[in-house]
Design a protein around this nucleic acid. Structure first.
Lengths: 134, 134
DNA sequence: GCCGCACGCTCTGTTTTTAGAAGCGACATG
DNA sequence: CATGTCGCTTCTAAAAACAGAGCGTGCGGC
């Protein structure tokens, strides 16, 4: 990610946080947040940990997410290899999304994150902005 | 967070992901992503783990972040009790931001997250959108 | 056959968030 | 005095997310 420094791309901007600054954060962590820092990705991944779900099931489970964003997110997560889109030819034809092993490997960490939030985050939503995952 | 279900607020939308749907994700996790899912929060917190920094130092270390967003983020993180804004009356007057114990408690998890990203995320940024942390 | 429903998305316009740059007052230095 | 840094604030433009309507397909009931 150090070479991303010159690019100053708004996209990979966070990824270049490592850069050359002594206080900058780890490049790998920045990369992690490339996904987890986008709204809904964490919740979508966590929602899939109990087993594959169809698009409509996901839409209902991830309350608050819009169709277009869900579609976009699933596309990105699949492209990144964290989820897998499975089509069964039926009848009836079914489409489901499941976690890949890479995606599944994240679950224990998300569990710890939940524990941290329970213990360390204020109960009242003091955050003013849209958390990417509500 | 279950009561947030009726609100359907875009803000707390993710937080209500738990709702009543059997596949929904943990409310605590959704709450965690209220912060971590906003662009730059994870990187800012991680950048502070090595010690307090001033605004300008943070600005340089978190490469790619804009002034207005950094200011806003620091305000939110402080309001949430994850960071602390310390003013020394000087001379010279100095303002620094440090992690609180709550914020510090997140660091081991961020460390694991970095490890996961190193092992499980593709090297090429396949994410199309702004990762909240690059 | 028609109709209604669910599914798995796509599309478009609107709102919100982030980016980017300029700006301000205070302070320190030459 | 001029210049620079600091710690922000303010404003505008661009990008992301929201919100709702829509489409084609498949299926079951009548």
């Amino acid at each position: 990610m150090e070479e991303a420094k010159g690019a100053r791309s708004a996209r990979s901007g966070g990824a270049s946080a490592e850069s050359h600054h002594p206080a900058a954060c780890d490049g790998a962590l920045a990369k992690a947040f490339t996904f987890l820092g986008k709204r809904w990705n964490g919740v979508i991944l966590a929602t899939l940990q109990h087993g594959p779900l169809g698009y409509a099931e996901l839409r209902r489970a991830v309350e608050g997410i819009s169709d277009s964003v869900l579609s976009e997110r699933l596309s990105e997560l699949s492209a990144a290899g964290l989820t897998l889109r499975e089509v069964k030819t039926g009848p009836p034809i079914t489409v489901r999304y499941r976690l890949t092993p890479d995606g599944t490997a994240l679950m224990p960490i998300l569990g710890e994150l939940a524990g941290w939030a329970s213990r360390h985050l204020p109960d009242t939503p003091t955050v003013s902005r849209r958390g990417s995952h509500g």
